[in-house]
Design a protein around this nucleic acid. Structure first.
Length: 408
RNA sequence: GGGGAGAUGCCCGAGUGGCUAAAGGGGGCGGACUGUAAAUCCGUUGACUAAGUCUACGAUGGUUCGAAUCCAUCUCUCCCCA
């Protein structure tokens, strides 16, 4: 069987590794149990988590056993790594609720049959810890001096770090230790921002048991300019279709920068590397083919074949000028709002296409609005219910945003 | 516990009585150019009517014809000392 280490390396996942040679050897000769933790701080996973899921999937395909750990316990603390502010304290109910949603996504990518993968919640062993016991048992193995020097606290050394958050590292290390004891877990993976926490776990296991444990981190998805990817105007790029529609999701990937196409194909799809390299090498206008493949593939992974197809068709139609048939988002507008006639400004704001009338006015004056394929340049332009009758009342905002307005 | 500094629009940050809806930058949005790319250029970026009005500079009161700017109290943040 192919060594998953080479696969991960070739596709560009690996950022840091504790014991490169040993890890490579181990992964080649035996099935390895490893874990990745996910803190349910939001009610949906985002694209950053997706990379981790991909890694688990690659690992499982090569015969290793993933443990997806839901951080129901650690979320009670909040990981301060790389953050400039303290996380909001969350209630147990919300955490449990979010954890439920995570499960569904994992099941799409991992096979949990016959214990080929596990999902556990660290709330099971963290929530009932006894403070004194824990401190004597685990706390003794940590040096505050070293912790303070850790890179992940850097930003917090300027802004302030509470003792609550300072404990996070111990708990994550303890997770790894527990998984090692219970399931023989030998490796912990995570985003590169988790490096400090992962090392802490590796060292804890070595100190307490003398056993070998390893850690590896993966690149955070960044653009060629080094900016974190997956940010949209509305916040993160969510995997939940309720929060980010498949169409928006598709469009995000359709619009990535040329320079990022190959990297994204390697990290976010299962396409063979030969194909990835071929697509990434396309030049000029042709790179758009690669972007279509990328957008389609990623959307298919997350939302399924059907949704991906729909998004692709909609996008193609919308951008080829043949908008009438495109499956573009519909917004409803109450008929009484329209009355006998409605002016463009009221239309845009009432339909939620713009947040305010001022914004609508701005857009119209700046030539940013088209209705039924016609630029609207006069803010006095008005419409009557008749204009909506054929169901093709399509508003184009800027170059890329299309909305179909339907009276209700 | 003692002392000091600070809180301005989405973010950073200037502004220390009227010329301030608030410089500058970033980001966002629109336009041009294009390949639904990048870079670049232009415009725009509190709200409502279209020429004013209203709401805004941590919160609440006060001084003044007039306050982001002065005073008081409060809240929060950071720094130094213990």
């Amino acid at each position: 069987m192919e060594n998953v280490y080479d696969v991960l390396m070739e596709r560009g996942y690996i950022e840091q590794c504790t014991h490169e040679e040993e890890v490579k050897e181990m992964l080649a000769k035996e099935p390895v149990t490893f874990y990745i933790g996910f803190d349910p701080t939001a009610d949906s996973l985002h694209i950053g988590h997706f990379i981790q899921i991909m890694v688990m999937a690659h690992m499982q395909r090569c015969g290793h056993r993933p443990i997806a750990v839901i951080g129901g316990g650690t979320t009670m603390i909040g990981d301060p790594s790389g953050r400039s502010d303290m996380r909001q304290v969350m209630t147990q109910e919300r955490i449990a609720n979010n954890a439920e949603k995570f499960k569904k996504i994992f099941e799409r990518f991992l096979s949990f049959e016959d214990g080929k993968a596990l999902m556990v919640n660290n709330a099971d062993w963290i929530l009932n810890l006894n403070y004194i016991d824990f401190m004597r048992d685990i706390g003794t193995h940590f040096s505050v001096n070293r912790m303070l020097a850790a890179d992940c606290y850097k930003t917090r050394m300027e802004k302030g770090l509470t003792f609550l958050e300072f404990n996070y590292m111990l708990l994550q290390a303890y997770d790894f230790y527990m998984l090692h004891q219970k399931y023989g877990c030998k490796m912990e993976f995570g985003g590169n921002d988790q490096w400090s926490n992962i090392i802490a776990g590796v060292e804890l296991i070595r100190k307490k048991t003398g056993d070998d444990a390893y850690g590896m981190t993966f690149s955070l998805l960044t653009t060629s300019e080094g900016i974190k990817m997956g940010k949209t105007a509305k916040g993160a790029l969510w995997l939940d279709p309720e929060k980010t529609s498949p169409y928006e999701f598709y469009q995000y990937w359709r619009n990535v920068a040329d320079a990022d196409v190959e990297k994204c194909l390697a990290l976010l799809t299962f396409l063979p590397m030969d194909e990835v390299r071929r697509l990434g090498a396309l030049e000029g206008e042709k790179i758009n083919q690669a972007k279509e493949v990328l957008a389609y593939e990623v959307t298919r992974e997350i939302h399924g074949e059907e949704e991906a197809q729909k998004a692709q068709d909609a996008a193609r139609k919308a951008f080829s000028g043949n908008q009438a048939e495109a499956d573009i988002p519909t917004v409803e507008l109450a008929a009484e709002k329209v009355g006998d006639t409605i002016e463009i400004l009221a239309l845009l704001s009432d339909a939620g296409i713009t947040a305010t009338r001022s914004e609508a006015r701005r857009l119209v004056t700046q030539n940013g609005i088209a209705v039924k394929g016609q630029k609207v340049t006069d803010i006095k332009t008005a419409y009557t219910p008749k204009d909506f009758e054929d169901g093709d009342f399509i508003v184009k905002k800027g170059k890329k945003v299309y909305k179909r307005i339907v009276l209700v």
